[in-house]
């Protein structure tokens, strides 16, 4: 083993979407502070496979560099753990102390049903994007990229909103499991760009309708989403979503 920390884990185990789950205790010894949180799970899983008593813990992960948005652990009461602006895969064990007890749960939301252990189904996000999170431009339709100047401030703000990785930490953090930060990031990005203007009304109406259909809760502006967002997406996006929505309802022919 490569380190000398001992960690007590309480991990949510659930066989599949239909069964009941519970927290199970594991002790992981010889943890190195240089390990990432997921690498500690790798070590534990290797041990579980070798011992053959318990199945390894299922969890979602892929790029392990904080950009794909797949990793999704709710660690000691917070999505992606105690550090600001990082995903679970970027969290390292030096953020914990020897002997710590860490509770690890899946994202909890009616719209994110558990598949197994710590893995949940976030396809609701894909359906929200499919309902309007795009610009309808067929390949080959585009004009020259520089024919449409965009003020740098708008471009930068659109980029900051577009940095969303769709991990769902906002939903997990929100006491209402609201998806407003996610939806607002996409609505904002496209509302700030002139390319997004022709569809701005239908986009926001359809995306909000889909969001509600999926069973996410309403926003109560607690700010937990933005505080826990690994990409630090701003709450001003939610205000913009509200504006866009009411403007579309009150000021356009659409509903």
């Amino acid at each position: 083993m490569s380190g000398n920390m001992n960690i007590n884990l309480k991990v949510w185990r659930q066989k599949n979407g239909k069964s009941q789950g519970k927290l199970v205790d594991y002790k992981v010894e010889g943890v190195s502070p240089d390990m990432s949180f997921l690498e500690m799970f790798d070590v534990l899983n290797d041990r579980l496979v070798s011992e053959g008593k318990d199945e390894p813990i299922a969890f979602d992960h892929d790029c392990r560099e904080g950009i794909c948005g797949m990793c999704s652990m709710y660690i000691n009461g917070r999505p992606h753990g105690p550090n600001q602006g990082v995903t679970t895969c970027q969290l390292h064990m030096r953020s914990f102390k020897d002997g710590d007890t860490i509770v690890v749960e899946p994202w909890r939301a009616a719209a994110f049903p558990v598949i197994k252990d710590l893995a949940v189904d976030r396809s609701a996000f894909d359906r929200i994007i499919a309902s309007g999170g795009f610009i309808s431009v067929n390949t080959g339709n585009a004009q020259d990229a520089n024919s449409l100047p965009i003020p740098k401030d708008n471009a930068d703000e659109a980029f900051a909103a577009a940095a969303c990785i769709g991990c769902g930490a906002c939903v997990a953090a929100c006491k209402n499991s609201s998806a407003m930060l996610f939806v607002s990031a996409k609505v904002s990005q496209l509302a700030l760009l002139p390319q997004g203007d022709p569809e701005r009304n239908t986009r926001v109406l359809n995306m909000v309708a889909q969001m509600d259909t999926e069973g996410f809760g309403a926003c109560t502006n607690t700010g937990a989403c933005s505080a826990e967002c690994p990409k630090e997406i701003s709450l001003t996006n939610i205000a913009r979503l509200n504006r866009e929505y009411f403007a579309a309802q009150l000021g356009s022919d659409r509903s």
Partner: peptide
């Protein structure tokens, strides 16, 4: 709305650290 929002999370967290990311009043309206 409180009840509706509760329905959006049918299974509660075992450990929930709300104070880490939001003001107490905002969670207890």
């Amino acid at each position: 709305l409180v009840f509706q929002n509760k329905k959006a999370r049918p299974v509660k967290y075992q450990a929930f650290d709300g104070k880490a990311n939001s003001h107490w009043s905002s969670r207890n309206m």
